[in-house]
């Protein structure tokens, strides 16, 4: 892999990324020299046993964790050595994050949760309200907008979280076990939403999951063991259009 090369078709590029944690005197290599390219518009799933490094990989891609060494480019920008302020800006505008446990802000209702990143991005009140309404309608929650998280079911909360992740029109959507806390029927509807987003909006999507049923919905499937990518398989593409396929 040519580290210096620039390719605007690449959404995420990792070169020899390592992440080492020190627990007492023990070093844990959560990521061990990961090389990875994900093209814009690709839908990629990452599987692997617990402790394989898949969540760490997602956190590093999502700029909420920094690699110990190596190079990481997000949308053609080197981010591995950026300061917190710049990483925060990337998280706000370029990356949408969906968590297993939804992680909505409990004191804000559904629409306020969706508006939160837009507020931070200085989007005017009317615009952000209109967009948040549209996003909640898209995930089927038009009639639940003023509900607090504890008044919503798990599936509804996850759909609010998806709407929140889309608030600032990110280029990349990252999901860490997005269906881990919901039943199979809700899981299916959530995955359908993610597939639609990938297909219709050309969003680059990276989903981490234990569940093969979830992972197999992605055209490209990575497997990790001991901080390394041990397999990288591609199946039929879900995305329409001319979005390039990954390696």
């Amino acid at each position: 892999m040519d580290v210096g090369a620039q390719d605007t078709r690449i959404a995420i590029r990792m070169d020899d990324i390592t992440k080492v944690y020190e627990v007492g005197e023990t070093e844990i290599r959560a990521l061990d020299g990961v090389d990875l390219e994900i093209m814009r518009g690709q839908f990629v799933s990452i599987m692997g046993p617990s402790g394989s490094g898949k969540s760490t990989l997602l956190n590093v891609i999502g700029c909420i964790d920094t690699p110990t060494s190596g190079s990481l480019r997000i949308m053609d920008q080197e981010v591995s050595r950026l300061k917190d302020k710049d990483l925060t800006a990337i998280r706000l505008s370029t990356i949408g994050f969906i968590f297993q446990q939804f992680y909505l802000i409990p004191t804000l209702n559904a629409i306020e949760n969706v508006e939160l990143p837009m507020k931070e991005a200085r989007i005017p009140r009317d615009d952000r309200h209109r967009r948040a309404t549209q996003l909640l309608a898209m995930v089927g929650l038009s009639n639940r907008m003023s509900h607090l998280p504890n008044q919503l079911s798990g599936g509804e909360q996850q759909r609010v979280a998806i709407a929140r992740a889309l608030a600032n029109e990110p280029d990349i959507l990252l999901a860490d076990e997005p269906t881990g806390e919901v039943d199979s029927q809700t899981s299916d509807s959530i995955l359908s939403i993610l597939e639609d987003l990938n297909r219709d909006r050309g969003l680059t999507m990276v989903v981490v999951s234990h569940d093969p049923n979830v992972a197999n919905r992605a055209p490209r499937r990575l497997s990790m063991v001991d901080g390394k990518i041990v397999s990288d398989r591609s199946g039929p593409m879900i995305t329409g259009g001319n979005v390039p396929r990954g390696t």
């Binding site: 990337i90 706000l92 990143p117």
Partner: peptide, 16 residues
């Protein structure tokens, strides 16, 4: 703690 972590993860700045 977790809530603050989430805020930071979705791009809310330290300043905010």
């Amino acid at each position: 703690t977790r809530e603050i972590g989430i805020l930071r993860a979705i791009g809310i700045s330290r300043r905010s």
